[in-house]
Design a protein around this nucleic acid. Structure first.
Lengths: 204, 204
DNA sequence: GGAAAAATCTGCAGTGTGTAGAATTTGGGC
DNA sequence: GCCCAAATTCTACACACTGCAGATTTTTCC
């Protein structure tokens, strides 16, 4: 695989290939929405990006690599955002903020996130990315739980384990809700927020 | 598709084809464990069942149909069991029983259940089966929540919505834990049980 | 202006799928 | 035991997609 891998120290000027690469990912995202992962063929992606199938293999080694790159692009954007997440002092506030932000994420990138989840088992690279992402969320939830008074630790009733379960709850609930509609996503968010608060002992 | 579809009123005596059909599903389950869905080929399944690839198409129209049938077989067995689920009067007891039973289910059929979840998006028939199964669980959880005093209804903080979120939490948590080990599954179960109880207001 | 690198194309070989049609086996009835 | 129809299985083919191997064209940069 010649031109696209890691240690590619690009010039300041943008090569033609950068444009093409972006076009490929954009097309991939569009096709994912149109026909789904299975039905989408490497030829389709290439055509959408304005090149022949063979040329696409100059950029990516396979369909899986293309999708992995798309997930990486999205997830990177997601990490950036969560890095600046305000860690409010009031846990209630922190939960509310986190859920609001999560709704935004799923509204904007629901499709790619669902795809990432679906493929995280079969495509190792995507699995890696997604489990890293999940860890970020789990850590954030853990922090909130502990700040709210939940006993730290990894035993079943302690913060870490509970955070993990809550993270999966949110992931799966949003996964389903984001397929339905934005309203669905909002009510799902309320429900998750409620359970999160209760689990943190903030029954208010 | 000649011989295997719906209205097949079989004799009491077992035809050769019944054996073959079971052999196909068994092989499919074994291969699923060995190499996973993607890597498993129709030829592999046929070979494992002792027939040529072409002959397999007499029984099933595609790989997806084979897996769907396997899921159906498993899920049917699952429904039977949950039909006789004792509806204990004490919610605490009901939750404990339900979780114990769920651990058993995932221990026995974890592989097929994970496969069903993975394919429920791409294979409509499997999606149907699985969403039906999820509904059973959601209804059961809803009943327990209501019996424990949670307000009935479908608004975010009411029983039905909460049950849905809890169901997804359990599904996803068990999905991950069952890939790791039985111990993992047990501690995951404790965590889920704890959150379920708290959500029901049974903080005891 | 001209090499070196980047980008693209064409064509081939391999693998898996689904189906058609022929051939074989099985189960009863007589 | 014989024969027919249904059930079961096989072989062979047409097709779609993949991944790669040169050959070819464009860009980039000195």
């Amino acid at each position: 695989m010649p031109g696209h891998q890691p240690a590619r120290s690009r010039r300041t000027t943008e090569r033609k290939g950068d444009l093409r690469e972006r076009a490929i990912l954009d097309t991939c995202e569009a096709l994912l929405a149109q026909k789904g992962y299975e039905a989408m063929t490497v030829g389709d992606i290439a055509e959408g990006a304005g090149i022949k199938r063979g040329a696409l293999y100059f950029y990516f080694g396979s369909k899986q690599e293309v999708v992995a790159a798309l997930v990486a692009r999205t997830v990177e954007h997601l990490w950036e955002r969560s890095r600046v997440t305000a860690q409010a002092d009031d846990p209630r506030q922190a939960v509310a903020t986190a859920m609001r932000r999560t709704v935004e994420l799923w509204n904007e990138h629901g499709l790619v996130m669902r795809t990432a989840i679906d493929l995280s088992l079969t495509v190792p690279e995507i699995g890696e990315l997604w489990s890293h992402t999940a860890d970020l969320f789990i850590n954030a939830i853990t922090a909130v739980l502990e700040r709210a008074g939940v006993e730290p630790g990894t035993a079943p009733k302690q913060a870490s384990s509970m955070a993990r379960a809550l993270c999966w709850m949110i992931e799966r609930t949003f996964y389903h809700a984001s397929q339905a509609s934005r309203e669905e996503l909002l009510t799902a968010s309320s429900t998750c927020e409620h359970i999160w608060l209760i689990s943190a002992g903030l029954t208010a």
